[in-house]
């Protein structure tokens, strides 16, 4: 469903240069749920950015569902790539209501003069929101800005999944939430991804999350894939084992302070 072939990306900030992606070859099959872990600066977020098209690779090809999208701008790829950001404020439009945000996500192709909030659509939104179990179906006309971080992120996950994208990108999407909401949003994500068999990549700092959900685990370091574990191997792994694996490659967590997100924004 998703193929990366020899994808490289180097950031140059002043005299320093950081090789965020170093010839990544990665194939993700239909319905696979990949969790991606790695130290700061390992290239996780850059990986998602080049797939989404918000960052251009220096070399390599990216294909989604057999189609080469390397030269496509982000908004064009968005028709079949869903994305949830770390910051809940990025995944929703604050001054639009809950219903309007959902309507924005419901029609990813060319927009027409159809009413954005038709009756049938609103009923559909209510049903979908009810799945979240957060009573958001009763707050359709509230602005997204008035939702809590967790509610807003749950809404963003729903928005990103309900057009059934071919690939879903989750960028540490629970990291900015309080523990209870982080758990709830992870649960919702897992539930939606599995219910709709959406091919997904989830970047996370939380090794326990990386182990708990998903059908495959990838560990990145210095722009390369160090470890690629299938469902069976992953099931037998504990958090300590993962930490041990990190130690083995010599990762100290505060070793690389430059995060990918900052580097991409600075470009």
């Amino acid at each position: 469903m998703l193929t990366l072939h020899g994808v490289s990306k180097t950031f140059r900030l002043g005299k320093e240069s950081v090789r965020a992606l170093d010839g990544i070859d990665l194939g993700v099959g239909a319905g696979e749920f990949l969790t991606v872990i790695g130290s700061n600066g390992a290239g996780k977020t850059t990986l998602l950015n080049v797939i989404a098209g918000t960052c251009w690779p220096d070399s390599g090809r990216i294909a989604v569902a057999g189609q080469d999208v390397t030269a496509w701008p982000a908004y064009r790829r968005a028709r079949f790539i869903g994305r949830v950001f770390q910051d809940p404020r990025q995944g929703t439009a604050p001054h639009l209501t809950v219903a309007e945000n959902l309507a924005l996500a419901a029609q990813k192709g060319p927009r027409t003069l159809r009413w954005a909030l038709g009756r049938a659509r609103l009923a559909f939104f209510r049903r979908e929101l009810a799945v979240l179990g957060m009573d958001l179906e009763k707050r359709l006309n509230e602005r997204a800005a008035y939702l809590s971080g967790g509610e807003r992120q749950a809404l963003a996950v729903l928005m990103a999944t309900f057009t059934r994208p071919k690939v879903l990108l989750l960028d540490e999407h629970t990291a900015a939430l309080d523990p209870a909401h982080a758990e709830r949003v992870l649960e919702i994500t897992d539930q939606l991804v599995r219910a709709h068999h959406i091919t997904s990549l989830m970047v996370t700092h939380r090794m326990d999350h990386a182990l708990r959900v998903g059908s495959r685990l990838v560990m990145m370091h210095k722009g390369r894939v160090l470890l690629d574990l299938g469902a069976a191997a992953k099931a037998n792994l504990g958090v300590e084992d993962l930490v041990g694996l990190f130690r083995k490659v010599g990762v100290v967590d505060d070793e690389l302070l430059l995060t990918d997100a900052k580097a991409c924004a600075a470009q």
């Binding site: 908004y75 064009r76 028709r79 869903g82 990025q90 439009a93 001054h95 924005l104």
Partner: peptide, 14 residues
């Protein structure tokens, strides 16, 4: 409206 309100979100939705 979405594009003016949050360009990142708008872009992520095509």
């Amino acid at each position: 409206r979405a594009s003016g309100d949050n360009p990142t979100t708008a872009q992520a939705y095509g």
